[in-house]
């Protein structure tokens, strides 16, 4: 075990993992995180806490992850390269680990242009790949980026993002391979609506033997209106939404139910694809849907592990 996190245990034990995602509040309301935790507890293996997503100021992902941990849900703390340099990033990683956070997802972060402080300066001292490498070296070599050693290293389960729908398409897989090489233990993909394209991408991923080296969680975005789908199609860069889906949603008498149905179908289709080790559900502002969605997708009950496995488990080979 690298970190002994619940997510790592689920994945290394060869079970199909289910991740959730939560956006922290745009205020100091820590209670709302505990409230939202109810929608996730027992239904997912871990929950991502976004790091000022779309560059909008929110309660910090570290504090949110810690609050979620207190509420009995395992967090995946997201960390972007947009707002911190390598000094702050490493410092926050140490702090997060000291607070009990074991999963970190390294991403470059949305450009501040899309956020609520478009006049801010971005940092990008390092990129997401370099961040992965730094996290891996901190864990495995007990070394900071500068090469200096530390006494107690953060035992982290390190995640990265991949977008099969962005361009240049053929380079996407090579970049994923780079991320795995840099230290990504697991991958969460952009929300999948276009299954054929995702399948093509997974084929290329398998050709490079990546599912044997990392765990791949396919992204699911449950939507409750046709508007949301249209918005993602037209406004979000790196999203592929098939027209059939938009038509289906626009004809639905009960769009919420249809949205759940679509998400369930997507999960079932993605689960069939060789090399997909789990799903990452991103219920943007619709966390309440998680219990019913996970249940209808046949993903319950979630695996449970004994607290504190003291026996150092062998590195279980991931199943392709």
């Amino acid at each position: 075990m690298k970190s002994g996190s619940n997510l790592e245990k689920v994945l290394t034990s060869g079970q199909f993992a289910v991740c959730g995602e939560m956006g922290p509040p745009q205020s100091a309301d820590g209670k709302s995180i505990k409230k939202k935790a109810e929608y996730f507890r027992g239904y997912v293996d871990s929950v991502n806490l976004t790091d000022n997503q779309t560059a909008i100021v929110r309660l910090s992902s570290i504090a949110s992850a810690h609050l979620l941990l207190d509420a009995g849900v395992e967090p995946v703390m997201q960390m972007t390269c947009r707002d911190r340099n390598r000094i702050a990033i490493q410092s926050d990683v140490l702090g997060a680990y000291a607070l009990g956070i074991k999963n970190i997802l390294a991403i470059s972060g949305d450009h501040q242009k899309f956020g609520n402080h478009p006049q801010s300066k971005n940092v990008y001292d390092i990129d997401s790949l370099q961040l992965l490498q730094i996290l891996k070296n901190m864990r495995d070599e007990k070394k900071f980026q500068n090469g200096e050693e530390m006494k107690v290293e953060p035992r982290l389960f390190i995640g990265a993002a991949a977008n099969p729908f962005a361009d240049p398409f053929e380079f996407r897989v090579l970049r994923l391979a780079k991320k795995v090489k840099a230290g990504a233990d697991f991958i969460q993909t952009q929300g999948v609506f276009d299954v054929p394209r995702f399948k093509r991408w997974m084929e290329m991923v398998r050709d490079l033997g990546l599912p044997e080296k990392t765990f791949i969680l396919a992204g699911i975005i449950p939507v409750r209106s046709v508007k949301a789908l249209q918005y993602m199609k037209s406004e979000v860069a790196g999203m592929s939404v098939p027209d059939e889906l938009i038509e289906r949603m626009s004809k639905a008498a009960k769009p919420q139910e249809e949205g759940v149905k679509i998400a369930v179908e997507l999960i079932q289709q993605l689960r069939e694809i060789k090399g997909v080790h789990g799903v990452h559900i991103m219920p943007v502002m619709w966390e309440q849907v998680i219990p019913q969605l996970v249940e209808q997708a046949g993903l319950l009950p979630r695996p449970r592990f004994e607290e504190e496995q003291t026996t150092p488990a062998k590195e279980a080979p991931a199943k392709g």
Binding site: S108, G109, H111, Y124, A166, D167, F171, G238
Partner: peptide, 29 residues
């Protein structure tokens, strides 16, 4: 690159353009 990324394009690269502005070419493309 709008984010000065040194290891390839971010997820916002689409049709050769940067997510920050459709007028900007994606450097990594």
């Amino acid at each position: 690159c709008s984010k000065s990324l040194l290891n390839g394009p971010c997820g916002g690269s689409q049709n050769g353009k940067c997510e920050v502005d459709p007028e900007i070419d994606c450097a990594w493309q």
